[in-house]
Design a protein around this nucleic acid. Structure first.
Lengths: 152, 152
DNA sequence: TATTGTTATACTCTATAACTATA
DNA sequence: TATAGTTATAGAGTATAACAATA
């Protein structure tokens, strides 16, 4: 579990490290409750629940999952009976992904579990700072998409 | 504040997802510059540079890396000539890890690369919000350590 | 008996490149 | 030729459990 002392020195600069540590904590809290859905899996299920049937390209973009990662991820959800996968008759290159009834149930449960994790973080930081953190993370996540290649 | 009032409106997609997306962005920025050191590898190298020789248990705790993850991670750094590994004569169960001269050079380069990533984030968020984000992530990371295990 | 680290095992994420089948 | 998705491949992180060596 990697508990114990923390590093507080020069890694002040290492945002990647801070993000990783924060993720470990949140993921641990999440996993305590969810157990059987990883964060990207949960994202996929939530998005499908919100938006209905989607092709893989759209789904992958929304969930921030690479297409070559998405295929095996969907395979796992498929084998658990949470989603269906059907060729789009209008464009037979596309696979349309949708939640099964069991998938929709799992999504609803997941939302409640996410709320619990949220509450846990709120107990730690307070509601205002949780809102601030969410906002900053979202900006960081969005901003990163527009990153330009390095000049070499 | 009303007792039942919780901040659960904006977080339907889940904090884990936001953290993951932010990590993707920062890791991409980091990888653009660092290329050959993953975030946990970098953490290990930085810690060794700052604190000198450390046994694996201490090192793993500081870097937030599980002991069974640390062994192969160190193997990779070892095969790249960045660290040395020697049995502690005072306690032969312990392996003392230290940076080689090449490892110290890599650490110095890594600090500069981390600073560049930091600047990139600062350009995105501004200095004040970068400081806020760092603080909140640190609290979140620290807070997670105190999470109790589930009763099973 | 307890501690330190290794190994075996398993799962998932991540991404590049080559490939299939459509369009 | 371009697009959607799959597959092959490779590398790394994550963790649990069993184990050896040492204390």
């Amino acid at each position: 579990m990697t508990s114990g002392a923390r590093y507080d020195g020069m890694l002040e600069d290492g945002m990647a490290h801070q993000l990783r540590r924060a993720s470990q904590a949140v993921n641990a809290s999440w996993q305590l409750r969810s157990g059987d859905l990883t964060p990207p899996q949960f994202a996929v299920v939530q998005i499908l629940d919100e938006r209905g049937s989607l092709d893989q390209k759209t789904l992958g973009a929304l969930a921030a999952v690479d297409r070559s990662t998405l295929t095996p991820l969907l395979d796992r959800l498929l084998s658990r009976g949470l989603i269906t996968k059907n060729t789009d008759p209008d464009n037979r290159r596309r696979q349309l992904i949708a939640l099964t009834p069991a998938g929709r149930e799992r999504a609803a449960l997941g939302r409640e579990q996410a709320r619990e994790t949220s509450r846990w973080i709120e107990d730690l930081l307070g509601p205002e700072r949780l809102a601030t953190l969410t906002l900053l993370l979202k900006e960081l996540g969005d901003g990163g998409r527009e990153q330009e290649a390095p000049s070499r």
